[in-house]
Design a protein around this nucleic acid. Structure first.
Length: 669
DNA sequence: ATAGGGTTAG
């Protein structure tokens, strides 16, 4: 009830139309072409009914047809409604917009596009003026069928377009897969403004995903604030999402932080944003805050949180989440995320059993497993799985092939690799991209065929980039080809002048051959350019806590005990024949003492802590930010044997499963 | 009465 100036106004709010559809049929009786004069002028308008009540028998017949039609529409009986529509078309009689709109929704739901097109033709017959509301329904139908050209043609034909018509088109283009089509969404927004139609929250939440320039996004964000629509949750979550895609997490957080009424999707947007930017820590913290705020994780939340676990290698937390995943056991995306989590946390047994139980598998499920097997050192099994995929009739894509080539390169399977590389275009219609060439350079280079690797680079259809040359440089290191290494390093620096890794790799190569002058040169170049080496860092999860170890950093509360433990381990390992390999000392240019430097490589500290803190049967799982050095690799093999326990170390490229003095990589990495 | 946001493999 509203009170104003002494008057009482009763406001009745209803969610559904309060007029039953039947009522329209009786109105349609009045609307029928009952008088000869109306019939000759081209049929009846429901929307401008005559008041002629002398119903002739023809009119009564027409009314019956319309009545039936509306009845079928209302009941969702598509075949009967279409039959009635046919008769109406022949008699040139029409029903009310609402009945047609019902029928159009039916067509969209039942995937009956031809019926939809018939309705389209019918409402454009001479003698009928379809309302904008009805045409919006048709527009939406074409969009649902992804028939953009037809939607556009109808849109162009419309005598009047309201904000919904514009938004339907903008949303359709923004959701398209190709950037040129997405740009069309932005063009339409401008045309809409020129036409004097005001965008609303629906329009903005749709158009945001089409922003391919940061500047444009900022402009649109400004307009949103200006017209006072930033408070809408749909607009907010879209803003968070687009800022995240640009890696602009501070802006995303800003939009998120200002919110008072956050809903589930807004939480998902910000959590997903961090997860996709490989920033697992804030993603997990926000997840905890979301739960505290009283929200339950849904599929989307869980997928993102799993991804955060994946990037942080948090197996135990991942396992806990698995329990929540069980209630969505048919969700393909979620299952894929789970597969990847177990693969990348080095627990391949778990992903294997999930994969075999999954009813639906798509190209991502298969690719995840193939890459997972390859990275974990099970190359033969990766190739077998690829063959099983062919039987399953799921077509591989360029990422699947990348996994296959990765498997070949990390197991030294030169012939297999060459076969798959040659046949990818022929068998699967996939053109090799830079990444595929990179894999092949890696494959040939590691196998010692440096000349062939260089030849392949020169034959590339696309311009080689830093990744390509980095693959060659890595191979030069293994095979100690100094001159080629220097050449490759220069090419990398040309593409990526601030790449600390290249300087380090180059200095390692020189260190392996005791070329001290060159090392000094590289070091000076780094100093000159102000390039800083990323310090080695390792992480280990113990009792739901992540412990970080950084080279040279003594901030861990138990660091003294850990160093003592590590010294004891080294002492015992030396008795077993372990000889620290001084070649690797020099990668830590700034360290004071060689012995110390090697001793305190972060993964060694993490392993020592794992021995101290984890119960004896437990696998020690470590994630590190740099590739493992040969000395730590030897150390881990012997430690696994001495302690009779498994050690898994994940570096940025692949996994090392150490067991009984051996590593799954076969010392080939 | 018709239009809108978040989730997976390199």
């Amino acid at each position: 009830m509203m009170r104003g100036r002494g008057r009482v106004v009763v406001v009745v709010v209803r969610e559904r139309p309060c007029i039953p559809l039947r009522f329209f049929s009786s109105l349609a009786l009045l609307a029928g072409p009952s008088s000869p004069s109306r019939r000759s002028s081209g049929g009846g308008y429901y929307d401008a009914p005559t008041t002629n009540c002398n119903a002739s028998s023809a009119a009564a017949e027409n009314a019956k047809v319309i009545d039936n039609f509306i009845d079928h529409c209302y009941r969702g009986d598509l075949p009967r409604a279409m039959k009635a529509l046919d008769t109406m078309q022949q008699r040139n009689i029409f029903a009310h917009s609402l009945a047609y709109s019902h029928l159009i929704s039916c067509c969209a739901a039942r995937r009956a596009i031809e019926h939809g097109r018939s309705i389209h033709r019918h409402v454009f017959s001479p003698g009928y003026r379809p309302k904008t509301f009805l045409l919006n329904h048709l527009l939406n139908m074409y969009v649902k069928f992804r028939l953009l050209p037809e939607a556009q043609a109808l849109f162009d034909q419309m005598p009047r377009r309201n904000v919904i018509s514009w938004t339907t088109m903008i949303s359709a283009y923004a959701a398209a897969s190709s950037p040129p089509l997405q740009r069309r969404a932005l063009d339409l927004l401008i045309l809409m403004l020129r036409d004097g139609v005001c965008p609303n929250m629906f329009t903005f939440s749709s158009v945001l995903r089409a922003c391919h320039e940061l500047q444009l996004l900022t402009q649109i964000h400004c307009s949103i604030i200006k017209v006072g629509l930033e408070s809408d949750v749909y607009v907010r979550s879209a803003l968070i999402d687009v800022y995240s895609r640009w890696g602009e997490m501070s802006s995303a957080l800003c939009v998120f932080g200002e919110m008072v009424t956050r809903d589930q999707v807004v939480w998902n947007s910000i959590i997903g944003g961090f997860a996709q930017n490989s920033d697992g820590d804030p993603a997990l913290h926000l997840y905890i805050r979301m739960k505290r705020a009283g929200f339950q994780a849904d599929q989307s939340t869980l997928t993102s949180v799993l991804r955060a676990c994946t990037s942080l290698a948090l197996l135990e937390l991942g396992r806990q989440l698995h329990v929540h995943v069980l209630k969505y056991d048919q969700d393909l995306i979620l299952n894929n995320a789970l597969l990847d989590m177990y693969c990348k946390c080095g627990s391949f047994k778990d992903s294997d059993s999930i994969f075999s139980r999954m009813v639906d598998k798509d190209v991502i499920s298969w690719s995840t497993m193939i890459m997972g097997l390859a990275q974990n050192g099970f190359s033969r099994r990766a190739l077998e799985l690829f063959k099983a995929m062919a039987v399953s009739k799921i077509k591989p894509n360029h990422i699947t092939i990348l996994g296959v080539l990765f498997a070949c390169s990390h197991a030294g399977l030169v012939d297999d690799g060459r076969y798959y590389f040659r046949s990818m275009k022929k068998l699967y219609g996939i053109d090799p991209g830079r990444e595929h060439y990179g894999c092949m350079v890696d494959l040939l280079g590691r196998a010692g065929r440096l000349d062939e690797a260089v030849e392949l680079i020169h034959k590339m259809e696309c311009e080689p980039d830093a990744v390509t040359w980095r693959a060659l440089l890595g191979a030069c290191r293994v095979h100690r080809n100094m001159d080629l290494a220097a050449y490759a390093a220069k090419q990398i620096i040309k593409h990526d002048p601030d790449d600390a890794g290249t300087y380090i790799l180059l200095s390692n190569i020189y260190a392996n051959s005791q070329r001290w002058d060159e090392i000094t040169e590289v070091r000076n170049a780094m100093r000159h350019k102000g390039v800083k080496k990323e310090p080695g860092c390792s992480w280990i999860e113990v009792n739901k806590c992540v412990h970080a170890f950084i080279l040279g950093d003594k901030s861990h509360p138990q660091i003294i005990a850990i160093r003592r433990e590590l010294k004891q381990i080294i002492h015992r390992l030396k008795e077993m024949g372990y000889v620290p390999d001084a070649n690797f000392v020099l990668q830590d240019l700034e360290e004071e003492q060689m012995e110390d430097s090697l001793l305190y490589h972060s993964e060694k500290l993490a392993m020592a802590f794992g021995i101290m803190a984890l119960s004896s049967g437990k696998t020690i799982r470590i994630r590190k930010n740099l590739r493992i050095c040969g000395d730590c690799h030897d150390f881990a093999k012997l430690l696994a044997k001495m302690e009779s326990r498994s050690i898994v170390i994940r570096d940025p490229i692949r996994y090392h499963h150490f067991e009984d003095g051996h590593c799954s990589c076969g010392d080939y990495w």
